[in-house]
Design a protein around this nucleic acid. Structure first.
Length: 1045
RNA sequence: GGGCGAUUAGCUCAGGUGGUUAGAGCGCAUCCCUGAUAAGGAUGAGGUCCCAGGUUCGAGUCCUGGAUCGCCCA
C-alpha cells in the first residue's frame, strides 16, 4: 500500500506554502518546536522592535527572514530558542502621523489640542498596521511569538526603563547641560536630523570678513569669516586649526592674520606676507570682540574642527549657536552666553537689535560693525541652509538645556566589550562601529515631545534638587497625590503627580521624554519587566547570542543596546551581530514611493512565494551588500534552485509510487556495496552537511546556501540524469533498491538542511518522504534534529567524478566539432591524462562511456605514440623554491625532451634538470603535463585532460544508432498516445530495409526499452492499434503502431 | 570635510595564504534530448578584473595615489 502523496507541478508553489502554513497552525508546530527543547542550553535571540505605524516593506522581509534562519537552525541543533516579538511604539514618527491625521502642526497646536487626547491618538495609531505586520510575519515563515510581544509603551516596559534611568542617575551618570540643536523658533521645537534633511533650501546670506583687533599688537587684526553675522554678538572666542600655519599679511597699512594657505585666495596673489607662524604661537592671544556685550577676555583657542577649505582659517566661536562651537568652548572651559530668546529675538543684552528676529538683524549689525571699521569685506554667499519643513522658517542652531547620559565614562569599556562581539561583516567591529565608539560623546537622551517614555526625574520647586524615581512603587511612596492602580505613566498624567522633596518642598517632573533609541536599547531587560519580576529574571536571557538589523542601525539600536548593557550590566548585550544591506530596486536606485519603484512584499509572495523570496535574500550575495531587488531576480532564483529541487523530489516520488517502486525502509545494499554514483552522491551529501552546518554556525547563510544549491544541482543534473533508468528498469532489483535508497537519503537530508532557509518546501518534502512512512519520525521537519555527516565522505571519488564530468564535457565538445550527434554510438573514447587521473577515472569509465555514448573508454597516459606530451613548470611549487630563477626554470623545462622526461618521471618519480648550471631535482608534482591524442580522433582538451573520439561509424554502429532513434520515436508515440509510464504495449513496426535491419539486430533492446510484450515487423497489420504514427528516421520512412498489451 | 564599504562578462554575482588558460547563473547564438516533459541538457561568443604608479621571477589578489558609486557622520 503506497503512502506516497502525488507531487503537483512546481508552478503551484504558493498553494503548497499555504497548505504548509495551515499544517503548522493546526498542529501548533512553532510552539512545539520551542517547547520540545525546554530545559536545553538556551540560544538567545533579541527582536529589534520595528514600528508598526507604517506598512511593512521588502526591507522588513529581509531583516525578518534573517532573524528567522538562525533561531530555526539552532532549534534543530537542540537549543532552547525563545522568540519574543516586540514593537517600538513611541517617537516622533508616530506623533507626526497623528498631527497629519488631525490636520495640526507644531507644539503649540498639539498643546492647544490637549496632550491627553493627542497621546491617546498616538497609542491608537501605533497598532494601525499591526494586522498587516502579523500577516506578513506569518506568511514569510518568520517564527516569532507575536502573542507575547513586548511593546515599548506598555506600563511594565516603561517601569523597567524608569528603573534603568534611575539606576544611572543614582550612579551619577545623568546630568543636564546645554546642547545645540536645530531649532525652529516659530514652532518652538527642536527638529530631528530626519526632519532637518527634508528642509534644505538654497539661500543667499550676507557673508562678511570681520576684523578682530589683537589687544597686544596694535594695527594687527585676526581676519574672521562668517555667514551668520547675527551670531557675532555672542562671540566668545576665535578658533584656529592647531596643525595649520598662520600668516601676518600687510594690506593697505594694516596687518591681518589668517591661515597661510588661504592668503592668496582671500587677499590675492600680490599679498605681502610679513611672516608666518605655527598655530601654537597664535593661541592664547587676546582680541577685542566685535560687540562688547560678552564680558571677560576673548582669546584665540585651538580646535581640530577648523578647516582651511574656505574662510580664513580662523573661526568665530558662538557656543550657543553651533555644535562645534559648543564642543570647543567646553574643551576650553568657556561659557556659552545666549542673547537670543526662544522666539529667535535678540534680548536686551544686544541693545542694537533688541526684539529683532536674528535673521532680520544681519543688516543692522553689519552696518554697526562697518561704522566701527570692523568689516574688511562683505559679499553675498549662496549656500544650502536648513529650514523648518513645516513652516519654512530658517532653522537656528540653538543651545537648549538637555539631559545627558555620561557614556564617555564607559567609552573604553564599550570598546573592550566590542572586542568580544562577532560582527558580520567583520570590518564593522573596528570600522564603522569601532570608530563610532572611539568618537563617543555623551548621549543626549531628552526630547521635548509628548509621546514617549517620560523621564523619571522630578525637580524641586524650592531647592531645585532632582530626584530620580525608579519604580511605580517609589512614585506612590513619594507622591503628594494619590496614584491609582491603573496609572498610565505617560504624559500628561505623570506630569500631574508632584512628589515631596527631601527639603520639604514640592517637586515636579521635568517636561522631557526619553529618546526612543533608549527605549529599544532597553529591550533586553524591559521586555521581561526586569528587575520587577525577580533579580534572576534575565537568567538564560542575557546576553543575546544573536541580533540582526540593517547596517544603518550602527548608531541606532546596536549602539543603544551596547551603551545600556555597559552602563547597567557591564556586559555586551550581544555576542553576534549580522548587519544587513539596503534593498534597492533592479536599477540600483533606492526604493521610494515618490519614484514609484517600490516592490511590495505581497507582490513577491503572491507570485513567487516565501521560499523563493527567502532563498534569494539568503544567497544572492553577502547579507551586508545592497540588494538589487526585483521580482525577476526572485523568479530566477526560484527556477534555478527551488524548481530543480522540486523536480528531483517529484522524480523520486513518481517512480517510488509505481507498483514495483519503493518504500522508505525497503532493504537496500549497504553503502559500501553500492555503485560509484551512489557513493559519490552520499559523499557529496556528507560534504554538504558539513558545509551548511559550518556556514550557519558561522552566520554565513550565503555560502551555506550555495553549498546546498551545488548539491541539488549535482543530484539533478548528474546523479538523476545519468541514472534515470536505474529507477525503472526491472532487470536489477538490487541496484534499483540502492538507487532509491540513495536518492531518498539525499532528499530527506536536504529537507533537513533546507529547513531553516525554505521552511515550506522542506516540510512538504519531509512529510512525503519521511513522516508518512515512519511513525516514529517527527511529523514536521522543524521538530526534527539537525543531521550529522556520517562518514560517507570519499574525496578521491569526488575528485574522480569531477574528472569524469570534465571528460564528458570535453567529449561532447569533440562530438560537436565532428558533427557527431550524441544518439549515434561510437566505438571508443580515448582519454589522455596523467597516470594519477587515469587511476581515479578507471572506476567511472562506464559512466563516461554511457554519457558519451561510446562502446569503450580507453586511457592513454604516456608517450606511446598515440599521444603528444608537453611539460610546464608548476609555478605554485617551484616559485617559492626558485624565486628570481623562475624564468630560467621555465626555459630549462621547455628545452626538455618531454616524452623522455615523462618516461623518466614515471619510472623514477623524479628527473634532474640543469638550471643555471645547477643540477636540480624535479618531482612529479613540480611539473604539469599536458597530453593529447594525435591522429584519427576528434579531440577536445582541457586543463589536465584531453578526450578523443573515434570518428569511424561502422555499419554495426549505424544500426545501433538507428535502433536508438527508433526507441525515441516509439517513446514519443507512447506519450502522444497518453499512455502511463508503466503501461505494457503490443508494438508493430514497418519501414525501409535499413530500418528493418536495425530492428532485427536490436529487437530485444527496443522491446525492453519501450515495454513492448510483443514486437512484430511486417507490411500488414496484425492488430487494431490504439495509436499509429508514420514518420521518418534518418531519412527513412517508418511506421509505428501501438496497442495496449 | 571625515569614516567605512564597493567597483571582475550585456545583467546579477563567485574568486583561502600572490602562482598554469579569471569562473557560475541569467540573457544571447547554435544545437541536443524527449519516460524528470507546462521540464532538462550541451557547445559557443562575450573580460584592458575602475584608472595610474609601485613591490615581486609572477598581481584580479599586496602597497601608494586617484576616479566613480553607496552608507554613516559632520
Amino acid at each position: 500500500m503506497s503512502k506516497w502523496r502525488p507531487v503537483g507541478p512546481a508552478a503551484e508553489w504558493t498553494a503548497m506554502e499555504e497548505r504548509v502554513l495551515a499544517f503548522w497552525r493546526e498542529n501548533d508546530v512553532f510552539q512545539r518546536s520551542v517547547d520540545d527543547r525546554k530545559g536545553a542550553d538556551p540560544y538567545v535571540f533579541y527582536e529589534g522592535p520595528p514600528t508598526a505605524n507604517g506598512r511593512p516593506g521588502s526591507h522588513h522581509v529581509l531583516s525578518r527572514v534573517f532573524k528567522d534562519i538562525f533561531p530555526r537552525f539552532h532549534t534543530m541543533r537542540g537549543r532552547y530558542v525563545e522568540r519574543k516579538a516586540g514593537w517600538d511604539c513611541h517617537g516622533l514618527p508616530v506623533e507626526l502621523e497623528v498631527e497629519k491625521q488631525l490636520g495640526i502642526s507644531g507644539k503649540p497646536e498639539i498643546e492647544a489640542y490637549g496632550i491627553a487626547e493627542f497621546n491617546a491618538r498616538c497609542r491608537a495609531s501605533v497598532g494601525e498596521y499591526l494586522d498587516e505586520w502579523e500577516r506578513l510575519t506569518d506568511r514569510i515563515g518568520f517564527w516569532v511569538d507575536t502573542s507575547q510581544a513586548y511593546r515599548t509603551m506598555d506600563t511594565d516596559y516603561v517601569e523597567s526603563v524608569w528603573w534603568s534611568l534611575a539606576t544611572m542617575f543614582d550612579k551619577g551618570l545623568v546630568y543636564e547641560s546645554d546642547k545645540v540643536v536645530p531649532y525652529c523658533p516659530r514652532c518652538g521645537t527642536a527638529l530631528s536630523s530626519h526632519e532637518v534633511a527634508q528642509g534644505y533650501k538654497d539661500v543667499t546670506d550676507p557673508s562678511i570678513y570681520v576684523r578682530f583687533p589683537l589687544v597686544d599688537e596694535p594695527g594687527t587684526s585676526l581676519l574672521v569669516w562668517t555667514t551668520t553675522p547675527w551670531t557675532l554678538p555672542a562671540n566668545q572666542a576665535a578658533a584656529i586649526n592647531p596643525h595649520t600655519a598662520y600668516a601676518v599679511v600687510h594690506v593697505d597699512g594694516e596687518r591681518l592674520v589668517m591661515a597661510d594657505a588661504l592668503v592668496a585666495k582671500v587677499i590675492g596673489d600680490d599679498a605681502v606676507v610679513e611672516r608666518t607662524m605655527p598655530a601654537s604661537d597664535l593661541a592664547g592671544a587676546a582680541y577685542e570682540p566685535p560687540f562688547g556685550h560678552i564680558p571677560g577676555r576673548h582669546i584665540v583657542v585651538m580646535s581640530d574642527f577648523v578647516t582651511t577649505e574656505d574662510g580664513t582659517g580662523i573661526v568665530h566661536l558662538a557656543p550657543a549657536f553651533g555644535e562645534d562651537d559648543m564642543r570647543a568652548a567646553r574643551e576650553h572651559g568657556l561659557d556659552a552666553p545666549n542673547p537670543v530668546d526662544r522666539q529667535g529675538l535678540f534680548t536686551d543684552k544686544v541693545p542694537e537689535a533688541v526684539g529683532v528676529f536674528v535673521k532680520d538683524a544681519d543688516r543692522q549689525l553689519i552696518t554697526d560693525l562697518e561704522g566701527r571699521g570692523r568689516v574688511f569685506r562683505e559679499k553675498p554667499y549662496e549656500h544650502s541652509y536648513p529650514h523648518c519643513w513645516r513652516c519654512s522658517t530658517p532653522l537656528l542652531y540653538y543651545a537648549k538645556p538637555s539631559w545627558y547620559i555620561r557614556t564617555t565614562d564607559v567609552r573604553d569599556r564599550m570598546l573592550a566589550l566590542n572586542e568580544q562581539v562577532g560582527w558580520h561583516p567583520e570590518h564593522v567591529k573596528h570600522g564603522r562601529f569601532g570608530r563610532w565608539l572611539e568618537g563617543n560623546v555623551d548621549w543626549a537622551i531628552s526630547r521635548e515631545r509628548y509621546w514617549g517614555t517620560p523621564l523619571p526625574f522630578w525637580r524641586c520647586d524650592d531647592c531645585e534638587k532632582v530626584t530620580a524615581i525608579g519604580s511605580f512603587k517609589a512614585l506612590r511612596d513619594h507622591a503628594v497625590v494619590e496614584v491609582g492602580d491603573e496609572f498610565d505613566p505617560h504624559r500628561p498624567f505623570v506630569d500631574e503627580v508632584p512628589i515631596r522633596c527631601e527639603c520639604g518642598g514640592t517637586a515636579h517632573r521635568v517636561p522631557e521624554v526619553v529618546d526612543v533609541w533608549f527605549d529599544s536599547g532597553a529591550m533586553p531587560f524591559a521586555q521581561h519587566h526586569y528587575p520587577f519580576e525577580g533579580e534572576d529574571g534575565l537568567a538564560g536571557r542575557f546576553p543575546a547570542d544573536f541580533v540582526c538589523e540593517a547596517l544603518d542601525q550602527t548608531r541606532g539600536w546596536f549602539y543603544s543596546l551596547l551603551a545600556e548593557g555597559a552602563l547597567l550590566f557591564d556586559e555586551a548585550p550581544y555576542r553576534n551581530v549580522v548587519c544587513l544591506g539596503l534593498i534597492l530596486d533592479g536599477e540600483g536606485q533606492k526604493m521610494s514611493k515618490s519614484k514609484g519603484n517600490v516592490v511590495e512584499p505581497w507582490t513577491v509572495l503572491d507570485h513567487a512565494g516565501a521560499d523563493a523570496f527567502r532563498w534569494y535574500l539568503f544567497t544572492a550575495q553577502s547579507p551586508w551588500d545592497s540588494f538589487r531587488f526585483s521580482l525577476d531576480v526572485v523568479d530566477e532564483t526560484r527556477r534555478r534552485f527551488l524548481f530543480t529541487l522540486w523536480n528531483t523530489y517529484a522524480f523520486l516520488t513518481t517512480y517510488a509510487s509505481l507498483p514495483d517502486g519503493f518504500t522508505p525502509g525497503d532493504p537496500a545494499p549497504p553503502v559500501a556495496e553500492r555503485s560509484e554514483m551512489d557513493r559519490w552522491a552520499l559523499s557529496r551529501l556528507d560534504a554538504t552537511i558539513d558545509a551548511v552546518t559550518d556556514g550557519l554556525a558561522g552566520y554565513d547563510p550565503t555560502n551555506a546556501g550555495r553549498a546546498l544549491e551545488s548539491l541539488v544541482d549535482d543530484l539533478s543534473n548528474w546523479y538523476v540524469r545519468t541514472g534515470r533508468r536505474r529507477f525503472w528498469r526491472s532487470d536489477d532489483a538490487t541496484d534499483r533498491a540502492a538507487a532509491f535508497a540513495t536518492l531518498h537519503e539525499c532528499l530527506s537530508t536536504i529537507a533537513l538542511l533546507v529547513a531553516p532557509f525554505c521552511p515550506f518546501v522542506a516540510d512538504e518534502m519531509w512529510g512525503n518522504l519521511v513522516a508518512a512512512h515512519d511513525p516514529s519520525a517527527p511529523e514536521s521537519v522543524h521538530l526534527a534534529n539537525w543531521p550529522a555527516s556520517g562518514g560517507r565522505r570519499d574525496e578521491a571519488l569526488e575528485q574522480a567524478m569531477a574528472a569524469a564530468l570534465e571528460a564528458t564535457t570535453l567529449g561532447r565538445s569533440a562530438r560537436k566539432d565532428a558533427k557527431l550527434k550524441v544518439r549515434q554510438p561510437l566505438k571508443e573514447a580515448v582519454i589522455a591524462c596523467p597516470p594519477a587521473t587515469a587511476r581515479l577515472l578507471e572506476g567511472l569509465s562506464s559512466v563516461v562511456a554511457e554519457e558519451l555514448n561510446v562502446r569503450e573508454v580507453r586511457f592513454v597516459t604516456d608517450a606511446g605514440g598515440l599521444v603528444d606530451v608537453s611539460l610546464k613548470p608548476n609555478y605554485r611549487s617551484l616559485g617559492p623554491r626558485f624565486g628570481k630563477g623562475m624564468p630560467a626554470v621555465a626555459e630549462a623545462v621547455a628545452a626538455l625532451d618531454a616524452n623522455q622526461a615523462v618516461r623518466d618521471l614515471d619510472a623514477d618519480g623524479a628527473i634532474h634538470v640543469i638550471v643555471n648550471g645547477n643540477d636540480e631535482r624535479f618531482e612529479d608534482d613540480d611539473l604539469l603535463r599536458e597530453v593529447r591524442p594525435t591522429e584519427g580522433y576528434a579531440v577536445a582538451e582541457g586543463g589536465s585532460l584531453a578526450v578523443g573520439l573515434s570518428t569511424e561509424i561502422t555499419p554495426e554502429l549505424e544500426m545501433e544508432g538507428l535502433a536508438r532513434d527508433l526507441v525515441r520515436a516509439i517513446q514519443n508515440a507512447r506519450r502522444t498516445a497518453d499512455l502511463k509510464v508503466e503501461d505494457r504495449i503490443v508494438l508493430h513496426l514497418d519501414g525501409s530495409g535499413r530500418i528493418r535491419e536495425a530492428i532485427d539486430a536490436h529487437r530485444a533492446y527496443i522491446a525492453g526499452e519501450v515495454l513492448a510484450t510483443e514486437l512484430t515487423v511486417s507490411h500488414g497489420m496484425p492488430f487494431t492499434p490504439v495509436f499509429r504514427e508514420d514518420g521518418e528516421i534518418d531519412g527513412e520512412p517508418v511506421s509505428i503502431s501501438i496497442a495496449l498489451a
